[in-house]
Amino acid sequence: MTDTVPAPPTDAAPRTAGGATVEFRALRRSFGATTALDGLDLTVQPGELLALLGPSGCGKTTALRMLAGFEHPDSGQVLVDGKDVTSTPAHRRDAGMVFQSYSLFPHLSAVDNVAFGLRMRKVGTAERRRRAAELLELVGLPSHADRFPHQLSGGQQQRVALARALALRPRVLLLDEPLSALDAKVRTNLREEIRRLQLELGITTLFVTHDQEEALSMADRVAVMNAGRLEQCAAPAELYDRPATAFVAEFVGTNSRIPGHLADDGYVEVLGRRLPAESGTADGSHGSHGSGGREVDVLVRPEAVTVSADPTGDALVVAAAFLGAVTRVTVRLPDGTDVKADLPSTEAAVLPPGAPVSLSLPDRPVLVAARAA
């Protein structure tokens, strides 16, 4: 039995009044000697799903909690539709929040959990049960209304938590790693459901995650954070294809660092070729460090590397990981550098470990970073 949910009837879906614009302006927050946010500037457009992505401790959850009203900045502002809500209590902010732990009331049924916020707002019994029933249908659990949390699977409990967050028809939905406690199959199904609901309701949504696959598959834009600062905010394809910094390039997707020489003219000599350095290259260098340039690393995605059998080649295949239609081949250069390449499995089959090969890169700009220590 899976947690796959059929699409609900369209007339069951409560409608929001439209998503809100959310702005973080120069937010700073420290906890003792630890800087959680270091001048965060970020705008979320109405109806957009924006993922805050980054490693543990990067500040993404702190930013979300500031929007919810659970944390307050040392300086800076949080605005919703142009209104400064920095000092507004959490219960007066038009936001619904779903946590990593489902946080359901164990003594209440699913329908009563969903209706809880409506009861606190003095909505009549009949109306709140009607709206709670609509929301349970929206999340695919109409037959589970009378079940208690211990009678529900993890995915079902998280759906109830999502319905509860939507019950008050918030203009902003906040999701704090809501899928991390679920197994892989349920997590995949539920992230698809969250995205479907978000699009259907048109609600502005911030989604905190450290899982790049979740962020790239769900979000309109992804904001990558590191040590309290925003590294880059862009659509998933742009983030992957044109990372603004070395951190983004290596945190999102897989890269190999290949030694190269950055010349004064902005070209990089790598694997026997001269290629232009990407505009705004990762460490901000364009060969302006004196006559003769300097040694750098070139960051290369595995799908950009071409591997050819070559009896005279000075690189060797050292490993191959079968991934279905694609096989990820690891090739070792003479200096000991390992380069990953994604090849069609039919091509990789004739390149067993130990096979001599040659490598090449496409004729396009490459991202350059400071040489790794």
Rank of each mutant, 00 (worst) to 15 (best):
Y267N: 11
A234D: 15
V186N: 05
V300T: 13
P362V: 11
A132G: 04
P142I: 14
T88Y: 14
L367D: 13
R129Y: 04
S75I: 01
L316Q: 12
Q198W: 01
K122V: 03
L216D: 09
G287D: 10
I194R: 10
A163Y: 03
H107C: 07
E214R: 11
D342M: 04
T205G: 07
A372Y: 03
R364D: 03
T337C: 07
V85A: 00
P9V: 00
E134I: 02
E137I: 04
P14H: 06
A227W: 06
L135W: 15
L166P: 05
L37F: 03
A20D: 13
D211Q: 13
S180T: 14
A20V: 11
G284C: 08
V357H: 12
P236V: 10
A7G: 11
S87C: 02
R332T: 06
Q45N: 07
V252L: 07
V160N: 02
P302K: 09
T312D: 14
R65F: 08
F24S: 07
S291L: 15
H144N: 06
A309R: 13
E231Q: 15
T245M: 07
Q212E: 10
V300A: 11
S308M: 10
G253D: 03
L168S: 06
M66T: 14
D94F: 12
V139G: 00
R130M: 07
L316E: 09
L79R: 14
S256M: 09
G260H: 05
L239N: 02
R171P: 01
G18L: 04
L168D: 02
A237R: 13
T125P: 15
E137N: 12
P46E: 12
R65M: 13
I194T: 03
T35L: 01
L166R: 05
F251N: 03
T88P: 00
L52M: 05
